[in-house]
C-alpha cells in the first residue's frame, strides 16, 4: 500500500487543564474518505484543526503528504497549501466578490498570474454549480451557496486533501443537500477527505471509513457498515441512537446518563 496521505500519531492536545485529545492514532490513505463522528466536546473538530495545525498539538505527530507538520522547522504555509479546509461558518472574505475570493489566494499565495487565477476560479465555480454568482458578494448568497463557494475556494488551490469541519451544521436543512452533493462529487473524483459531520446518511453512503470519537479518544474505526450499522461499543450505540432518532433519545437520556455515570 502507498503511504497514507494523512497520518496522525500519538496526538495530544490540551487547552489549559482541559485535555481535549488524549492520544489519537489515525491514518487516511490517498483517495480515502473518512467521516469523523462523535458527541460535541469529543474532540473531533480539534483533531481536524490539528491536521493542518490551526491548533498546535501539545504532543504527537501530524504527517500530511509525507511532510511532518509538527516539525518546528517545516514551512507550515507551504504545507497548508496542500490541504484544503472548509469551515462550519464558511468564512468567505466578505469584502471580496465570489471570484475574488477564489483568485486572491491563488495570486497572493501561489503567485499565479491574473489570467490563470481567473481561469482556475471559473473552472471551480462551475464544478460547484455557481458560475452565475461569479460577481456577487458573499452576503448576497444563501448559506448553502456560500459553503459551495468556500469549497471552490479551497479547490482552486489544488489541494491533495480536504478537511471539512461540520460543513453543513450552520445551514438550513433544505440547503444541506447541495453542499453534500458537491462533497460526494469530490469523493467520487478520488479526493482524500476527512469530514467531521453529523450527516449519517452521507457517512453511510459516501465514506470509506467512519471514526467514532468520544472523550478525546478514537472509540471505534471501521467501515460505515461496521461503525454505523453494527457498532461494537456501548458509547457508539448510545450516540447513534440519539442522533438517528432524536425523538426517542429524550426518553433514553435518563438511563444513558445513569450508565454513563456508573462507568
Amino acid at each position: 500500500m502507498s503511504r497514507p496521505e494523512i497520518e496522525v500519531r500519538g496526538l495530544h492536545k490540551s487547552f489549559g487543564d482541559n485535555e481535549v485529545l488524549r492520544g489519537i492514532d489515525l491514518e487516511i490513505g490517498q483517495g480515502e474518505v473518512v467521516c469523523v463522528i462523535g458527541p460535541s466536546g469529543s474532540g473531533k473538530s480539534t483533531l481536524l484543526r490539528c491536521v493542518n495545525l490551526l491548533e498546535e498539538p501539545s504532543k504527537g505527530q501530524v504527517i500530511v503528504g509525507g511532510v511532518e507538520l509538527t516539525d518546528p522547522d517545516v514551512d507550515i504555509d507551504a504545507a497548508r497549501r496542500r490541504i484544503g479546509m472548509v469551515f462550519q461558518q464558511f468564512n468567505l472574505f466578505p469584502h471580496l466578490t465570489v471570484t475574488e475570493n477564489l483568485t486572491l489566494p491563488q495570486r497572493r499565495v501561489l503567485g499565479r498570474g491574473k489570467a490563470e487565477a481567473a481561469r482556475v476560479a471559473a473552472e471551480n465555480l462551475e464544478r460547484v454549480g455557481l458560475s452565475e454568482k461569479a460577481t456577487a458578494y458573499p452576503s448576497s448568497l444563501s448559506g448553502g451557496q456560500q459553503q459551495r463557494v468556500a469549497i471552490a475556494r479551497a479547490l482552486a488551490m489544488g489541494p491533495q486533501a480536504m478537511l471539512f469541519d461540520e460543513p453543513t451544521s450552520a445551514l438550513d436543512p433544505e440547503l444541506v443537500g447541495d453542499v453534500l452533493a458537491v462533497m460526494r462529487m469530490l469523493a467520487n473524483e478520488g479526493m482524500t477527505m476527512m469530514v467531521v459531520t453529523h450527516e449519517m446518511t452521507f457517512a453511510r453512503e459516501v465514506a470509506d471509513r467512519v471514526v467514532f470519537m468520544d472523550g478525546g479518544l478514537v472509540v471505534e474505526d471501521g467501515t460505515p457498515a461496521q461503525v454505523i450499522g453494527a457498532p461494537r461499543h456501548e458509547r457508539t450505540r448510545h450516540f447513534l441512537s440519539r442522533l438517528l432518532d432524536p425523538a426517542m433519545a429524550e426518553v433514553e437520556e435518563e438511563t444513558s446518563d445513569q450508565v454513563g455515570g456508573a462507568t
Binding site: 504555509d77 497549501r81 489566494p105 488551490m157
Partner: peptide
C-alpha cells in the same frame, strides 16, 4: 471575526500576508 484569519491561514497565507490582504481591508 477570528474565522477570517483561520480561513486565510488554512489557504496558506503567512500571518503578515493574511493581515495585509484579508484583515486590514476589512
Amino acid at each position: 471575526p477570528k474565522g477570517q484569519i483561520e480561513a486565510a491561514r488554512s489557504l496558506g497565507f503567512s500571518p503578515a500576508r493574511a493581515m495585509i490582504s484579508i484583515i486590514i481591508p476589512q
